[in-house]
Design a protein around this nucleic acid. Sequence first.
DNA 1: CGGACCGAAATTGTATACAGGCATATAATA
DNA 2: TATTATATGCCTGTATACAATTTCGGTCCG
Lengths: 231, 231
Amino acid sequence: MSFQSFDNSLESRPIRDIAYEQLKHAIITGQIPAGSRIVETIYADQLHISRTPLREALRRLERDGLVEYVLHRGVVVRAFTIEDIDEIFTIRNAMMMLILPSIIANVTDEKIKELRDILKQMDTEYERADADALAISNRLFHGTMEHISDKIRILRVIDSQEEYIKRFQATTIASVVRRSNAHQEHHEMVDLLEKRDLEGLKTLFHHHFEESKETCLNAVRTKKLIEIHDN
Amino acid sequence: MSFQSFDNSLESRPIRDIAYEQLKHAIITGQIPAGSRIVETIYADQLHISRTPLREALRRLERDGLVEYVLHRGVVVRAFTIEDIDEIFTIRNAMMMLILPSIIANVTDEKIKELRDILKQMDTEYERADADALAISNRLFHGTMEHISDKIRILRVIDSQEEYIKRFQATTIASVVRRSNAHQEHHEMVDLLEKRDLEGLKTLFHHHFEESKETCLNAVRTKKLIEIHDN
DNA sequence: CGGACCGAAATTGTATACAGGCATATAATA
DNA sequence: TATTATATGCCTGTATACAATTTCGGTCCG
């Protein structure tokens, strides 16, 4: 009775989920540039699936805001503006401010240890200057911290914004200076959390997101990462 | 060439959209109680559509958080807890605080007039004690106000939370006392907006949401609106 | 009497078929 | 040449058919 669920977790995951993740990844990494039209038949062939699960995946992407539907024209990958980035980080920061009290209220010694373990891992990745690994660990660190709050709805909001941020995460972490500061800030976060210092954490997180946002904006402005393909 | 689009607006709206709205409405009003399983074939027959568009509608509801998917078991209408309501209003309030400066910055005389027109409509509905009409106008009023900010992402977050709130809106508006206070507060909002009084608006909105939340919580606690059907 | 195993019914997951709309190209007309 | 009519093809919208999986009832055996 109980081990059946383990089987499921691996092999009988619906195709739509896989399609969803693949497409999401392709959009986030820019493989499918903004403005591109996603023609169902073409992508269904490419992913070796039928249109049905593909369409269901597209509906989720639509709801995520990564693509846009046009009647009888299908989906188009959405373009991003400077204002978008600003809003995304604003929301992110506001949500963090909302859950910080709960994080402090719920945090346990085990959770602190868990965070420190992640940090230890990140230390080595930082020394190796392994940006890809850091990007993943970074998400893990923030995710672990946020989940302590147990505010599932707010976490859902954060998660939905996350999709957009990922798109630019590579650029943020690519900045050597920012990477160094952010790494240090992560350590400070756990220190402050251990001391249950709400105000300190508020200030630090605000600063942390503000810096990330600026790095993003700079990267975007200079490299013109945001492109609109008419097509 | 141009009038073709008018045809579309009415008849060629995808069935999935209609199915989505019908199901959403049924869930929000409690016609389909929390915990119910939504069997695709049954609902497809009932709505006189095929499973394909129905499934796409269900994916959107899933993303909205109104239903939950279980592998090979289909969707189940989600149950709501006191904590959910608290979080929802917390998010709502935080988002409003974020966009209020933009609302003040962007507001025009025409927009103020638009709001006053809605208020005038609401006055008559209030006198008639037409709760249903008030519920709709209430949404229109808040929506109009929020859209002045032009912060599309934050509006999207507000909108996604709205789905949950609607579920309890009926009970909020059912309270005679609350209805009276809320009605007065709506007038004050426009007055403060006309004066570009940011702090006043912040305080008023905070109060407004806090009161709505309490009314909701009371209604839920006493009437036990939140039911979990095992099934 | 209870539990385990088997099979049928129910229901989801996926593929395919078909109908219809929209766009583009081509032809026709002024 | 410009502009409109028309036809064709691509692609989406929807329905249906088929496959896979779960659930549940029943029967058999301990």
